[in-house]
Design a binder for these strands. Structure first.
Length: 153
DNA sequence: GCCAACGTTGGC
DNA sequence: GCCAACGTTGGC
């Protein structure tokens, strides 16, 4: 293993935006209710780097960069009845959902839209540009990550 | 274990 | 509003 792994995580800006993260500094990436996405978080390590992607907005795209600073944290929202993320099938004895803690690194100097990403990469290279892809957490190959980093700086 | 029906995400 | 791509659920 050499160096950090790279990931991309989506968030709807009206739910939690790059501005919110900049203000908070660190945050729990809670509320993930998809096993594949959760399992990707379980594969993360401290120091892994993450592209922050704004989804379900106009236009969607990469808006910032962050870093993993905490692992295997039980997602507290699964126990909160008033939360939209409440999961009645989960229990304190057998929690179903966990997450990572992330730290703000920087806001993209140049916004990199999904349409631009589709021009730069194909579905095989970057899972994000795959038509109909619904995964909110996506691994990014180092080679691809370096190119994206150059584009947003 | 199969599979149809249904639900969700999210771009367009 | 449409629809592609899955994931989940439940009957059998």
């Amino acid at each position: 293993m050499t160096g950090p792994n790279y990931w991309l995580m989506k968030s709807e800006p009206n739910a939690y935006s790059i501005e919110d993260l900049k203000k908070d500094g660190v945050t729990l990436w809670d509320g993930i209710r998809n096993y594949q996405a959760r399992n990707f978080m379980r594969r993360m390590n401290i120091g892994d780097k993450i592209f922050f992607y704004h989804s379900n907005c106009k236009p969607p795209g990469i808006v910032g960069f962050m870093e993993v600073v905490g692992l295997n944290i039980i997602d507290p929202t699964q126990f909160k009845k008033e939360s939209v993320y409440y999961d009645p099938k989960s229990s304190h004895e057998k929690p179903r959902w966990d997450c990572v803690k992330v730290k703000y690194l920087f806001k993209a100097e140049k916004f990199l839209s999904l349409s631009e990403l589709k021009i730069l990469f194909n579905e095989k290279e970057l899972l994000l540009v795959k038509k109909g892809n619904r995964l909110s957490i996506i691994p990014v190959e180092m080679k691809i990550a370096k190119l994206i980093l150059e584009k947003i700086k």
